[in-house]
Write a protein that binds this DNA or RNA. Structure first.
Lengths: 327, 327
DNA sequence: TTGTAAGCGTTATCAA
DNA sequence: TTGATAACGCTTACAA
C-alpha cells in the first residue's frame, strides 16, 4: 500500500496525492476522490521514505544518565508532555551514568541523522563532550546544567544552596555538607559553593572533616553522614546536595538516636515526592523539574523550526520548603 | 557524504562498499582500501535509506503510562540495559495514563513502520486495545500485565498479595485494604483478590467500609487511609496495593498519633527504594521490576529475530520483605 | 569476487 | 492545478 496505489485508485498522479498529503494545491474534486480512497484503504505514508527525501525525522533524541531518578524522570515527563502535543516523537538514550556513552549517543544521533534535535541531561562535560557538541548539526538544548554558549535550562543551584544553608544556619554554627562530585558543575560545584559562601558570609569556617562527597543515592548519604558525625560529633546541621542523600543522612541519625532537628538539622535539595512523607518531613528546596523539561522542549522546538536561533539560558526559580527537619 | 562518494574514492562500485558494510564477500585489497577511505572521511551510512530498503528499523517502541513512577522507571531501566547492548534504540511513548493514547501509539508505531518490535506497559485492556493488538504486524511483549495469548512478563501479583496479607493477619483480625482500580487486572484485581481470598481463608469477613480504592499516589493513600480509619476505627491493619499508597497511609496514621505497627500494621507491594527509609520502615513485597524489564527486552529480541515465535508468559518471583511496619 | 541496475516510497522541480 | 521525472542513499539479484 503505497502512494502509487492510492494515486491510481483515485485516478490522479502520485504527485497530486503527495500535495494532498502536504501543502494543498489540489482541486476540490481530486481532493475528495483522494480522501475517499485513503479513508477506505487506511493508507498511511511511509515515514522512512518521507524522511529520506526531506531530511526531517520529526524525532528528538533525549540523552539521560539514568532513568530511575526522581528528578530526571520528572524532567522527562515534562519533555514528553510538550513533545506529544507537537507531533514529535522521542528517541531515548539511557547512558547509565557512563559519560563516554553520552558522547557516543550524541554522535550516533547526529551521524545517523535520526533526530531533528537533541535534549541532553548531562552531569559532566569532558573535552570529548565539547568536541561532539561542536560537530553537531542539529539543535541541542542542555537541561539541568549551565553550559555557556549553548541553549540551556537549568536550576538555580547556587542560590538554592545559599538559601537552604542560610535557613540551617539560623540555629546551627557547626554545619557539615554532603555533596556530589565537583565535576557535576550544577549539583556538585555550584551547590557546594553556595554552602561554603554562605558559611563564610556568616563567619563560619567549615573544617575539612565536615565535608563529604557522595553518590546520588540513599546509601551513599547514609555512609557520608556516618563519616562526618564520627569525625566531628558536635556537628549540628547536615546540608545535603540532594534529597536522596538527605534521606540516607536521616536514616543514619535515627539509627544512632540523634534527634532531628533538635541535635542535628538536615536539609536536602530537589523536593522529591517522598520528602514530605519521611520522618521528620524534610526541609528542602523545591525545584521545578517537570516544568524545566517542558521549557527545554519548547526551546528546542523554537530552535528546530528556526524561529529562535540565538542561544538562550533559562534559570528556573525555586522555593525553599521549610518542614520538620530544621528548626 | 554518501556511499557513492566512498565508492569512487576507494575505486570500487557502491555495491562493494555495501557488501563491506554488511555481510562481507570483499577481497582483502578492496576491503583495506574501503576501510581507509571510511576512516578518513568518518562516513556513516544513512539509517533512513537502509531502513527504506530493508524494512528493518533497529528501533523498538516502548509505551508506558507514566514515566515518573518508581516501578515503571525501574522496568524501563531494565529494558534499555539489554537493548543498549544489542544495537537497538528506544522510541519512547509516554501516554500520561491515557488509555486512548496507548492505542494511538500502538497504531502509530506500526502504521509508520517505525519500530521492529514493541514493549507495552499497560494498565487496562479495552476492546480498542485488543483490536489494535490484532492489527499489529510487529512482535510485541506485554510487560507487567498478563494478557493470555500474548508474550508477557508480569509480577506474581496474586501470590504476592496473599503472602503479604498472611503476614499481616498473624497479628490482625480487622484488616482494611487500599487498592487501585479493578480494570488494572494486575495491580487492581489480582492484588485485591489475593487479599480477599486470604482473609476468607482465615475466616475473616471484610466489611465494605474497610475497602478503599485509590490512585497510585501518596496523597491518594493518605485520603483512603483516612476514610477507612474514620469509618472503622478498630481497623488493625492496612494492606496497600502499592508502596506509594502505603506511604500515604503511614503519613495519615502518624499525623493522627496512631501507632504503627502497635495499633495498626501497614504493608505495601513493590519495594521502592524509599521503603527502607521511611519511619517505620515498610513491610512490603519486593518485585524484580528492573529484571522483568530486561526479561521483556530479551523476549522481544527473540521474537524479532524470529528464533522464538511461540508466545511465552513469564511470571516473576517475589520476596516478602518484613520490616518495621508489621508485628 | 565484483559491477550493473532495479527498486524501497516519498517530495520537489519543472513544464504543461 | 496537474503530471512526468529526477532525486534521497541504500541493498540485492543477477550477470560478468
Amino acid at each position: 500500500m503505497d502512494i502509487n496505489t492510492i494515486a491510481s485508485m483515485a485516478g490522479v498522479s502520485r504527485a497530486t496525492v503527495s500535495r494532498y498529503l502536504n501543502n494543498g494545491y489540489v482541486s476540490q474534486e481530486k481532493r475528495a476522490a483522494i480522501k475517499r480512497v485513503i479513508d477506505k484503504t487506511g493508507y498511511v505514508p511511509s515515514r522512512q521514505a518521507k524522511t529520506l527525501r526531506t531530511g526531517k525525522t520529526d524525532v528528538v533524541g533525549i540523552i539521560i544518565p539514568k532513568i530511575n531518578s526522581a528528578s530526571i524522570s520528572r524532567m522527562v515527563a515534562g519533555i514528553t508532555s510538550v513533545l506529544n502535543d507537537t507531533g514529535y516523537q522521542v528517541l531515548l538514550a539511557n547512558t547509565d551514568n557512563d559519560a563516554a556513552r553520552e558522547v557516543g549517543f550524541l554522535k550516533l544521533f547526529t551521524e545517523r541523522r535520526q533526530v531533528d534535535g537533541i535534549i541532553l541531561i548531562a552531569t559532566v562535560f569532558t573535552p570529548e563532550h565539547q568536541a561532539a557538541l561542536k560537530d553537531l548539526h542539529v539543535p541541542i538544548v542542555i537541561l539541568d546544567q549551565d553550559l555557556p554558549g549553548y541553549s540551556c535550562v537549568h536550576q538555580d543551584d547556587y542560590d538554592a544552596a545559599c538559601a537552604i544553608t542560610e535557613l540551617a544556619l539560623r540555629h546551627a554554627s557547626r554545619p557539615g555538607y554532603i555533596g556530589v562530585m565537583e565535576e557535576d558543575v550544577a549539583a556538585g560545584h555550584m551547590r557546594r559553593k553556595g554552602f561554603m559562601d554562605t558559611c563564610a558570609a556568616a563567619g563560619i569556617e567549615v573544617p575539612e572533616e565536615a565535608l563529604a562527597v557522595a553518590e546520588f543515592t540513599v546509601d551513599a548519604g547514609y555512609t557520608a553522614a556516618e563519616s562526618i558525625m564520627q569525625a566531628r560529633p558536635e556537628t549540628d546541621a547536615l546540608v545535603c546536595a540532594t534529597d536522596s542523600i538527605a534521606y540516607g543522612a536521616l536514616t543514619y541519625l535515627r539509627e544512632h538516636d540523634i534527634a532531628v532537628p533538635e541535635d542535628v538539622q538536615v536539609t536536602g535539595i530537589g523536593d522529591g515526592e517522598l520528602s514530605q512523607v519521611i520522618t521528620p518531613r524534610l526541609t528542602t528546596v523545591h525545584h521545578h523539574y517537570k516544568t524545566s523539561g517542558a521549557e527545554a522542549a519548547k526551546m528546542l522546538m523554537g530552535l528546530m523550526t528556526g524561529n529562535d536561533s540565538v542561544p538562550r539560558e533559562v534559570k528556573m526559580g525555586f522555593e525553599v520548603v521549610e518542614r520538620a527537619s530544621t528548626r
